[in-house]
Amino acid sequence: MQRLKAFPKAKLTAVLETMSQKATVWVPSMIAGVSRFAPYRPEIDIQMGTNTAISPKEALFPSTEKIYTFSAYGIDGEFEPVDPSVGLQILFGLRSCDMQGILCLDDVFLTRGYVDDFYGSKREATTLITLGCVTPGADCFCASMGVNPVEHDGSDAQMYDLGDAYGIIARTDKGETLVKDLMATGLLSDTDKSQGPTSDFVLKVDSEGITEKLQQMFDHPLWDELSRKCLNCGTCAYLCPTCHCFDISEKKRNQHCGVKIKCWDTCMFSEYALMAGGHNPRPSKKERVRQRFMHKLRYFPERYGKLQCTGCGRCIAKCPVNLEITDVIKLAGEAKKDG
């Protein structure tokens, strides 16, 4: 068995400095009062204690991205694609919930016959380093969604919280390269310590059989009740590590040229499903709220075999009206099939 290598938490910046020689390292940090993953730089305020308020999907799927520029003078027109690739990057300190989120995004953007190069090029350039959780956050419930807080085998390297040090093992070739680089600096040493047990979750829900249950609940009156307090803002979707809807719009510089932009969108917005001609198949909050939870707990599992909620708890933490997915799962689970 691979002996665990570790570095003291006090040497974290040295480790990040080393990694930064070869790649942009996204670390959990405090930026302008909000915790999010941001590219490492020497004065950055690193926050390793709890998961970030904003999910790391922005490193692979930015909220606003140029896709091509266009120009037309007279009859001639030109399109020039914008190169979506980024330099090498490392996502450092991903929790299992976010790693699972990235696997969901992989399913959407890389499988089923079409590879989205905007996501794919960034994904390929990224080394993922997960970190085990010892203390679940107040809103965390990954274990209830089938995600293991201790570790995640989908990453390139796994770190463990050993109290005063971080242990690290490589899982893939990318991970091996990274660990080798760190070994070369002398920052790593062998350790016999192991990650302590993950303490108990505050938030728990039984999500067993939720997909099958929801398959019989499309017309259930539960959706009327649940949707009443929703504001139809984009907070839950934009914070979610698995939500991936986007819109294409444009910015014109003048009547001749401009740029097409891909930006985050959400089924929560009233105009999301609005069609040319004015028909909206999701005209009220009820349809939209139902859509959100159906997608996460039924349609996505039906298509990709995994739940589209990884239990990170961010939506629960920030929803202005505390519409909690854990409540939805519980109520749907308990509901009588025909209401």
């Binding site: 520029t69 120009s71 003078y73 030109e78 020039e80 510089r253 040229c257 401009g258 740029v259």
Partner: peptide, 9 residues
């Protein structure tokens, strides 16, 4: 990048 400035001006 061709779209940004009109090369004719």
């Amino acid at each position: 990048m061709s779209a940004v400035d009109n090369p004719k001006q």
